[in-house]
Design a protein around this nucleic acid. Structure first.
Lengths: 152, 152
DNA sequence: CCGGTTTGGATGACGCGTCAACCAACATCG
DNA sequence: CGATGTTGGTTGACGCGTCATCCAAACCGG
């Protein structure tokens, strides 16, 4: 069996560290400043990008790359906090539609500036265009090799 | 306020996706093949790298970059499964020492080959040396800018 | 030596993410 | 039409990670 070589190990440990700490740092900032989680933010972004602030749950899930169970749990919690509401889909009696509430819209509008600022500051601040390009290629390349998350 | 430009957005979304899906994929593989989580694996690696398979809890926590509360919870769960045991530290009456059990050693030895193979396959397979170097620089660069996780 | 602070660790509560199971509404094809 | 899938969504259980809180031992200044 071949273990990773020294360079790979170094890259791998740093990657693992970064891919846990960066989201954690963003979460803390969002939570402290706006009482939202990163996942809340992602949901609100999707909803606020549509004209009427309503998205079919199925489409929301696939846009976010979430399992339907995860989406269901999360939307339930967000609904309890008044950020979104749920309605039945018009064209499919099984379906469900997630709707952005006024409070939800207010929350993301209040949260976005500071969040974007933090992302820029923590991640993009010192990245050269060359690094950015390599990063983009690299992530896309690895993502294509990942097994598709099976819709459970 | 300046939102991210198109390149940055693309890189950012891919990054976010990858930094959740790659660990998830590894977790699934480890779980399915060896009934271990990625976190279990990390703990076992640390323990198995010492001569006697014992590490002071404090040191284990800082080696992993974990909060002490997280470590405490995790070790408790691993202890319940027989992978590690706990003992009092000899030199400090407050201290606690985490010890690798026979079952723990067997578990990591059984899990390592397939796990390493998956990491290589999913992440390093098609990475060029140039990409690897940029990735290493980039992660180190960003990590230094991250606020230190306060030892709670 | 005594009082205050720091350190090492445990615990309970709570939000998050996955898995397994379930159910009702479509779809398909005999 | 009816049997047999498939799709959209929910729920419960459980492991994970953070926060807040607590406690005892160790350290440190006067």
């Amino acid at each position: 069996m071949t273990w990773l070589n020294a360079d790979q190990q170094r890259a791998w440990r740093h990657w693992l560290l970064l891919s846990t700490r960066l989201p954690a740092a963003l979460n803390r900032q969002l939570q402290a400043d706006s009482d939202l989680s990163l996942a809340d933010f992602d949901v609100l972004v999707q909803l606020s990008e549509t004209a009427d602030g309503r998205v079919r749950a199925r489409d929301l899930g696939s846009a976010l790359g979430w399992e339907k169970s995860r989406l269901s749990h999360h939307v339930r919690r967000m609904e309890a906090r008044g950020l979104v509401s749920r309605a039945d889909a018009t064209d499919d009696a099984r379906g469900s539609t997630v709707c952005l509430t006024g409070a939800g819209r207010a929350a993301i509008e209040a949260a976005a500036p500071a969040h974007v600022h933090t992302v820029r500051e923590l991640f993009f601040a010192d990245l050269t265009p060359a690094q950015l390009q390599v990063l983009t290629e690299l992530t896309e390349q690895v993502l294509t090799r990942l097994p598709d998350p099976s819709p459970r």
